[in-house]
Amino acid sequence: MQITVNGKRHDVQATTLSALLDEMGYDATARIATAVDGCFVAASQRPALALHAGAQVEILAPMQGG
């Protein structure tokens, strides 16, 4: 299914958010936060979060800020 991750389109096998992170190669211990379709998805909710075609996924990490 086609989804968008951080603004780029991807064809993925994963059907849940946690499976998507695995498939894309994110380290399980990585300090990241996730949102799907503009809504925050807590780390504990990722295994249960079912992805749909066209989903907009954001994967964010710490960075410098003012």
Partner: peptide
């Protein structure tokens, strides 16, 4: 100290390195 969040690709370590520094 103020910090922020930005997109990070799989395998990129910039965010983790920054967090360790902070």
């Amino acid at each position: 100290v103020t910090v922020s969040l930005r997109r990070e690709a799989a395998g990129a370590r910039a965010g983790q390195a920054f967090w360790e520094l902070i």
